[in-house]
């Protein structure tokens, strides 16, 4: 599908969207013709309904069991929700947010991770024919640890272009305190004409800060995906370490994958790495499956499933893992 086709589909799908919002802008631009410096979100600001603010406060030194928040569908087409999470010094909290809606949603998470505090946010996001924007802004103080797990699943198919789902995810983490830490695991599956658009920016500000970004996903049919990942070592962030890896399984004849893994560095004593591996199932893996009687199509489905399924190994909560399993069954059309 050409760029023009996709634009036409978007405008047909979002006839009532009167505003174009520039989002997911990279901190460092590159050539405009690549179309990755930022993205345009078709939205309707004047009709947007604010669904309220959810404030979660973790008191100092206390540990909270999993807080699960399920977004319930509302009748309004454009919606906006705000989460504020304050984890005081030494506290621990895990929040699970589940978004599986029919209408469009902008979910904003503002998170403050206090000294020696731990925050784990698991955001499970399934798009139907709608658009979901997730915006996670986090500020980590000394020894604060922030773990983010993102599941993005699309269920559209090639029979109806207008039923494409769209995800725009923007993650910004400021590792301000010394020894603060960010771990990010993302798994996604985009199908049909789904459009997934990611922007991750990690600012290393304190000394000995650490970040580890892992994104694994699969693109089927005519799915379109942009991954921007920026690790920014600011002056003074000495002895910090940042790593970013992305694996993309290309399974459709018309998929489009764009990847921009950026490292910005103005500090000498740091170590930054990134790696990307993009392609279809390699022959060795395929041979492994075939030698066990599994054909290529099934093998591809298994691997596409695995992109998301691996997240369950990082989540202890059985109920959450059941949600992931159920989502996978639904989007892959499994009985």
């Amino acid at each position: 599908m050409t760029k023009t086709d996709r634009k036409t589909i978007k405008s047909e799908k979002t006839v009532d969207a009167r505003d174009i919002i520039n989002i997911n802008a990279m901190p460092a631009k590159t050539w405009y013709w690549l179309g990755v410096n930022s993205s345009e979100l078709s939205w309707n600001n004047s009709d947007e309904v604010f669904l309220g603010e959810n404030i979660i406060t973790a008191e100092a030194g206390r540990k909270y069991s999993d807080v699960i928040y399920e977004f319930t569908d509302v009748k309004t087409l454009y919606n906006h929700s705000l989460f504020t999470i304050n984890a005081a010094d030494g506290s621990e909290v895990t929040i699970i947010a589940k978004l599986d809606m029919i209408n469009n949603m902008r979910a904003l998470f503002n998170i403050n991770v206090g000294k020696n505090a731990k925050v784990k946010l698991i955001e499970l996001c399934k798009v139907n024919e709608n658009t979901v924007c997730s915006d996670v802004n986090t500020f980590c103080e000394e020894n604060g640890k922030f773990e983010l797990i993102h599941m993005f699943a699309g269920k559209s198919n090639e029979t109806d272009k207008l039923k494409m789902g769209e995800i725009y995810s923007n993650v910004k983490v400021d590792l301000v305190g010394d020894n603060s830490d960010f771990t990010y695991n993302m798994g996604y599956l985009a199908q049909g004409y789904d459009n997934f658009d990611y922007n991750i920016v990690v600012n290393h500000i304190g000394k000995k800060t650490n970040c580890d970004i892992k994104a694994n996903g699969a693109l089927k049919e005519s799915a379109h995906k942009v991954f921007r990942g920026t690790i920014d070592f600011k002056t003074g962030s000495s002895y910090s370490v940042g790593a970013e890896t992305e694996t993309v399984l290309m399974l459709g004849e018309d998929v489009v994958n764009k990847t921009v893994p950026v490292i910005l560095c103005s500090e000498e004593n740091v170590s930054g790495t990134h790696g990307a591996s993009i392609g279809e199932l390699d022959e060795e893996t395929l041979f492994y499956f075939e030698s066990r009687g599994i054909d290529k199509e099934k093998a591809e489905n298994i691997m596409a499933r695995a992109s998301i399924e691996r997240l369950t190994g990082l989540i202890e909560n059985e109920k959450v893992n059941e949600i992931i399993e159920k989502t996978l069954q639904e989007v892959l059309g499994e009985d």
Binding site: G252, V256, K258, T259, C265, G275
Partner: peptide
């Protein structure tokens, strides 16, 4: 700074990238 970009439009491709600072 390292600002690489990849735009891949066929599944039948094998693309690798690595960077270190």
């Amino acid at each position: 700074d390292t600002i690489p970009a990849m735009d891949i439009r066929t599944k039948d491709a094998n693309i690798g990238h690595e960077a270190k600072i």
